[in-house]
Structure formats: C-alpha cells, structure tokens
C-alpha cells in the first residue's frame, strides 16, 4: 500500500476512536456537540475516486452510529458532505488547479482557503445532523443555535488537529 493510503486509513481510525471514546464522553452542554470525525472525509486527497468518497463516508457514519446509538443519523449527514465535497471544491477553487495527490490541508493551500473549505463542510454536516436528529421544525431557534455553537467547537478542534499533525515539518 502506498504511504498515502496508509496515512488516510490511520487518520480515519484515529478520528473515529477520538470521536467515540473521548469527544462523545465530554458533555459540555446540549448546545455544543463537536463532530471531529468528519475531518477524515474533509482531508481525503483530491484524486480520491468519487465512489470511494461515498463509500468511506458510509462506513465512517455507520461506525460512529453504532457507538452513539443513533441508527443512520451520522451516516446520512456524512454521506451528504461526501456528496457535496467535489462541488464545494469546485466552487472555492477560484480558477486554481488542485495538484494531484495533494490533500486539502492548511499547509498546502493556505489559511484563507482552508478556513473557507472547512467552514462550509462543517456547517453543511452539522445542519444535516441536527435537523435530522430533531426531525421537526418547532424547535427551529434552538436547532440553529445548536448548529452555530457546535460548528464553532468542531472548527476549533479541526484547527487543533491541523496544528498537531498537518503543519509539522517533515
């Protein structure tokens, strides 16, 4: 296996365990529920085949669902961001051609681009998950607050992850 494949599988597993064994057990408030695991989909290399994108999202969502006792919830939201990922990348390319094999991280593409990309993906994922979880429109205000606060929390965690792993030299 090429080092890139190994690296992605390791990241996938690390994020999954971080989510279900650590993050899910830290109960900050009902408004703040970070989902760091979606970084595994966000950071897949640009040349990942599209079917593989969907398939990894399906498996990742399923595994997270098993551990949170929520059938299909994380699965559906993660599939959604895997589906929109190519379109989001197109939208914010600004004419830039993503080089092959290059993964979308801060080191390769700069802080501005990375912030834009990650925020869009996080907000789409969190909107899907919280609306599906509530499954009614009567608690609209609370749900919006929940999306905003949780997105911010996830965003902070994503940046911590970047500083810990992706920005290291070597």
């Amino acid at each position: 296996m090429s080092p890139i494949v190994t690296k992605n599988i390791l990241r996938f597993a690390a994020l999954l365990f971080l989510q279900v064994l650590v993050i899910d057990h830290i109960q900050i408030s009902s408004m703040v529920t970070p989902f760091i695991y979606i970084l595994a989909i966000i950071m897949l290399p640009f040349n990942t085949p599209r079917w593989l994108l969907l398939f990894s999202a399906f498996v990742l969502g399923f595994l997270v669902d098993i551990f949170s006792g929520t059938m299909g919830l994380n699965m559906s939201a993660t599939l959604t961001i895997a589906f929109v990922r190519p379109y989001v990348l197109n939208l914010i390319s600004f004419g830039r051609d993503y080089e092959d094999e290059e993964a979308p991280n801060m080191k390769n593409l700069g802080v501005d681009w990375f912030v834009a990309y990650v925020s869009i993906m996080i907000v789409i994922h969190h909107s899907a998950i919280f609306f599906l979880e509530v499954f009614r429109l009567s608690e609209l205000g609370t749900t919006f607050l929940r999306i905003i606060y949780s997105s911010l929390a996830t965003f902070v965690l994503v940046f911590l992850w970047q500083f810990l792993f992706a920005l290291r030299k070597g």
Binding site: F55, A57, F58, D65, M71, G72, L73, M75, S76, L79
Partner: peptide
C-alpha cells in the same frame, strides 16, 4: 446509500 441511511433512521 443515502436511502439506506434514511430507512435506518
């Protein structure tokens, strides 16, 4: 795949 997820949900 989304269909499967929603049916489960």
């Amino acid at each position: 795949l989304q269909g499967i997820a929603l049916i489960l949900l």
